[in-house]
Design a protein around this nucleic acid. Structure first.
Lengths: 134, 134
DNA sequence: GCTTGACCTTCCGGTTACTGGAAGCTTTAG
DNA sequence: CTAAAGCTTCCAGTAACCGGAAGGTCAAGC
C-alpha cells in the first residue's frame, strides 16, 4: 500500500501520516523507489491513532496509548487512568465553554441589534458597568 | 505608565502587550529612553481586549470589535452579528466536546481498571468491535 | 560616584498538530 | 512518448503567545 491508500483507508491525510512518521509516532518501510510502503498492521495502527485523536487525545497521549496497546502485560488500570485524566480535561474545557457561552448569550440577548450605535456588548467589554448584574 | 504597570492593571502579561503591539492590535508611544509609555486610554483598550479574549474572541475578532467600538457611527447590529457568530462557534465546540465526553465516559465506565490486561478502551480504539453498541 | 537589582528593549526559538506549496523524482494511462 | 498523477523532501505558515538571552536604563543605597 502506498501512502494515499493507507490515508484514505485510515481516514487520515497523507500529510498527517508523514508528520506522524517524522515525530516518531509510527514507522514505515520504504520500497526500492523510496516510497513508503504500508501493510495492514500499519493501517491498523494509524486508524487506532485516528480514533484516539478524534476522541481528543493529544499526540503524546496517543504515544502512551500505543505503548500500552502494544504492551501485552499492561494493566487496564493504566489505560483507564490515562482516559480518566483526559475526561477531566474535557470536563474542565466544557465548564469553561459553558460559562463563556452564558456570558456571551446574555450580552447578545441584551443587544437590540438595530442601526443605533448603543450596544451593551461593547459597553460590557469596555468595562462601563451600568448594566452589570452579578 | 510603563509596561509592567499597565500589564498588572489590565490583567495581561507584559509579553502579551508587546505581542499585541507587534501585530498592530494596539500602538504605544515611546519615551526618550525607548520605553513604551501607556496612558489611561491605552489601559482601557487593553482591558477591553483582555475581556473579549477571555470570552473566547479571537485576535481578529478583537480587531473588529475595537474597530466597531471606536466607530461612533456603527450600528449595534454589526456587533451583535459578530458576537452571534462567535456564539455559534462556541455551540459547535460544545456539541463536539459533549459527544467526545459521552464516548469516552462510556469507555471508561466499561473498563474494569484492574491489573488484568483486558481493556475495552484499547479494544475500541483498535476497532475490535465486540462490545460496540449503537 | 558606584554598585546592585529591577526594569526595559529586541530578537530568536519553541509550543500543537498539522497544512500548503515548491522543486524534483517515478509510475501509470493513453 | 507524453502528460498526469503520485511520490519524495524541505520550507514556511497557522494561533497566540511564552521563555530566555544579550544588553541598555533607572532608582536606591552606600
Amino acid at each position: 500500500m502506498n501512502i494515499k491508500d493507507v490515508a484514505s483507508r485510515s481516514g487520515l491525510a497523507a500529510k498527517t501520516i508523514r508528520y506522524y512518521e517524522e515525530i516518531g509516532l509510527v514507522r514505515a518501510r520504504r520500497g526500492d523507489n523510496g516510497y513508503r510502503v504500508f501493510g495492514e498492521a500499519d493501517l491498523h495502527k494509524l486508524a487506532f491513532i485516528g480514533r484516539a485523536r478524534s476522541l481528543g487525545f493529544s499526540i503524546e497521549d496517543c504515544r502512551a496509548l500505543l505503548g500500552l496497546y502494544e504492551d501485552r502485560n499492561r494493566a487496564s488500570a493504566d489505560v483507564k487512568q490515562l482516559a480518566k485524566g483526559h475526561l477531566d480535561c474535557i470536563d474542565r474545557k466544557l465548564a469553561e465553554l459553558e460559562a463563556m457561552r452564558a456570558a456571551l448569550a446574555r450580552l447578545v440577548e441584551q443587544c437590540s441589534g438595530d442601526r443605533r450605535p448603543d450596544c451593551p456588548i461593547l459597553e460590557d467589554l469596555a468595562g462601563e458597568d451600568p448594566g452589570r448584574r452579578s
